[in-house]
């Protein structure tokens, strides 16, 4: 049977990315993971987000925070039109990168370990496999992000229906910002899962990587502070603490950091994939 079209790298990358999403949505294992994720976020939304957002609206709380952290430390937080989205922003900034480490830990490890890649590499190039899996895992995380943002929007409009438009607008900007933040985490996990034999091993390598890097930077900081200041930007998530006190388009000012990190990591991962034995 002759192929209908000549397979191209881009087409096969998209086929593999869609297949990753399909594996999540049409597979009992994937659905269980999705359900567990939804349950965790339901609890986060129902308790911290809902109750904290009501605090955020009170004048006493603003005064307390200003007194505790200073006038300008988290003043942007009070400027959010939708208080729920402000709390969601803080939670998402730290939780989604953490989820990313777990969700994208098995981009390659299991398939490589059981030899399943060998069925793919004679049909498509290694570039398609690498970028297809990476794109697929970004699609999965985008889906999870959209679901949680929509749940936050519903939470906000259940309090005040007039918040629909501002909630959707700020939700879209939160999506773009968090999506960009997740790129280097997913790229880093792509490299680690290529090296590891299992998803668990890849996760352990990730924890070790961040912990050891932080220790090394701290040691360098005591000897060569200027070098340490430069090195801290190498780690994915270096900009997160500074992003808390930003909102909307202002948060995008930090986007070049994760974008450059992701580009470098994807370049390294792609070369590692090209040279690795399957």
């Amino acid at each position: 049977m002759e192929p209908h079209t000549t397979p191209s790298m881009v087409k096969n990358t998209l086929i593999l990315a869609k297949f990753e999403l399909k594996k999540l949505l049409f597979n009992p294992r994937g659905l269980i993971s999705l359900f567990a994720f939804a349950l965790v976020w339901l609890l986060i939304l129902l308790y911290p987000v809902r109750s904290a957002s009501s605090f955020l609206l009170t004048e006493e709380f603003k005064l307390l925070i200003s007194a505790a952290f200073g006038e300008s430390s988290i003043n942007e937080l009070f400027k959010w039109e939708v208080a729920e989205m402000a709390i969601f922003w803080i939670a998402a900034l730290y939780l989604f990168p953490l989820f990313s480490i777990f969700v994208s830990a098995d981009q390659f490890s299991s398939d490589k370990h059981r030899g399943t890649f060998r069925f793919l590499t004679l049909r498509t190039g290694r570039d398609s496999i690498f970028f297809g899996r990476f794109t697929g895992h970004m699609l999965i995380q985008s889906l999870l992000l959209i679901l949680t943002i929509l749940a936050t929007v519903i939470l906000a409009i259940s309090r005040d229906m007039s918040l629909l438009l501002p909630a959707l607008t700020s939700g879209a900007l939160v999506f773009i910002n968090v999506f960009i933040i997740l790129l280097p985490y997913t790229a880093m996990m792509a490299i680690l899962s290529l090296y590891a034999n299992t998803a668990r091993q890849a996760t352990i390598y990730a924890i070790l990587f961040w912990a050891i890097s932080a220790i090394i930077i701290a040691i360098i900081n005591s000897q060569l502070p200027s070098l340490a200041e430069l090195l801290q930007w190498v780690l994915p998530g270096a900009q997160l603490s500074m992003m808390i006190n930003t909102q909307g388009l202002g948060s995008l000012a930090y986007a070049p950091i994760p974008l450059i990190q992701a580009a470098v990591l994807l370049f390294l991962g792609r070369n590692y994939m090209k040279r690795s034995s399957l």
Partner: peptide, 30 residues
């Protein structure tokens, strides 16, 4: 790609997906 194929020793198909969905993936990649 698509001209050479193989039965690799010790390689197994994805245990979580049924045969036909994996074969459809292989076919579309070709």
């Amino acid at each position: 790609l698509g001209k050479v194929s193989s039965l690799p020793q010790d390689a197994t198909l994805d245990p979580n997906l049924n045969l036909i969905s994996q074969f459809i993936l292989f076919g579309t990649l070709q």
